[in-house]
């Protein structure tokens, strides 16, 4: 293996790992607070990508309805990102309000919530298929693609943006969870769900906040995914989402640090397997590695075993 080859794949793996990490964070946040595997989260990522597609297409004047003027790139990009994050967060919160909360309040078994989450995932996925059809969509070019070639390595500016932006966002998220009042309340709930209401913090608000945070991360991942691989399909949420979930588990579900690390581990495994073996082996080996990690450390890399008092 030459060094060039290695670096090339390293950068690809960083990019792919960033998507997985950003989505995995959403799974782990909700799990930490609600102990709910939010199986709809992968499709929230899909909603994010499609919302970004519609807003981006509209703002770059490629949509059926045209703006009377052209907007400069420095307006389009931030507006697309913020609006997409906002709308996707609304979808995430809506699901929590419509389906999860009423079930929780009625004291339904935890697994019924998981099934409802699965159903919402299917609803979003096939809702998309029914409304927009099976044809692929071309994500708008928000950035002009620049290709840098250094030796045998080619890097696009988009890859660099994706990697840097992911690091920045995860840094911010880390700060929110560790330092802010809301973040501390979130962590407090995952330690002890009885004590938090006693401390004068509304659990429902924290849950809401968690969904906003997780969904907007997924939206961001959706936009970045669309920019890097500009073909959108209705089932992209499932394909990428499940893998991100697995990444969250490898890291130790409930642990934010774990989700990030897990995303990159899975990303690296998949890219490097695909670099040496036929790409059809990618999933097979990635998931076998996952099982091996879990066999050695059942709670994931950063997960803490829950101990029940006897």
């Amino acid at each position: 293996m030459t060094l060039d080859f290695f670096i090339q794949n390293f950068i690809n793996a960083m990019q792919w790992g960033s998507f997985l990490a950003l989505i995995a964070v959403g799974y782990t946040l909700v799990y930490g607070v609600l102990l709910l595997i939010n199986f709809a989260h992968g499709d929230i990522f899909m909603v994010g990508a499609y919302t970004g597609y519609f807003i981006g297409t509209f703002l770059t004047n490629n949509f059926e309805i045209k703006l009377p003027f052209d907007l400069p790139g420095w307006v389009v990009i931030p507006v697309t990102i913020v609006a997409t994050m906002f709308i996707t967060a609304l979808v995430g919160v809506a699901i929590e309000r419509i389906a999860y909360r009423p079930l929780r309040n009625r004291g339904a078994h935890r697994l019924y919530l998981v099934i409802t989450a699965l159903m919402f995932g299917l609803l979003l996925e096939y809702g998309n298929l029914a409304l927009l059809g099976a044809s692929d969509r071309q994500f708008p070019n928000l950035f002009d693609k620049i290709i840098y070639s250094i030796g045998g390595i080619t890097v696009t500016n988009i890859k660099i943006y994706v990697i840097l932006l992911s690091f920045l966002i995860m840094g911010i998220l880390w700060w929110i969870v560790q330092k802010t009042r809301w973040g501390m309340a979130m962590r407090a709930i995952s330690y002890d769900r009885l004590a938090v209401p006693l401390m004068g913090i509304s659990v429902d608000q924290i849950i809401l906040f968690t969904f906003v945070l997780g969904s907007s991360m997924a939206a961001l991942a959706g936009i970045m995914y669309g920019t890097a691989f500009p073909i959108l399909r209705f089932n992209m949420g499932m394909l990428v989402g499940w893998q991100a979930f697995i990444a969250a588990v490898v890291g130790g579900i409930g642990s934010i640090r774990g989700a990030m690390v897990g995303g990159y581990i899975l990303g690296f495994t998949q890219i490097f397997v695909a670099a040496f073996l036929p790409s059809t082996y990618r999933d097979l080996i990635a998931f076998v590695v996952l099982l091996l990690i879990l066999a050695i450390k059942p709670t994931g890399l950063f997960g803490v075993p829950r101990r029940t008092k006897v």
Binding site: W242, I246, T280, Y281, R282, D283, L284, F287, V288, L290, L291
Partner: peptide, 8 residues
């Protein structure tokens, strides 16, 4: 994961 492993 078994779903994926079987299919793959």
């Amino acid at each position: 994961a078994v779903n994926f492993i079987f299919k793959s």
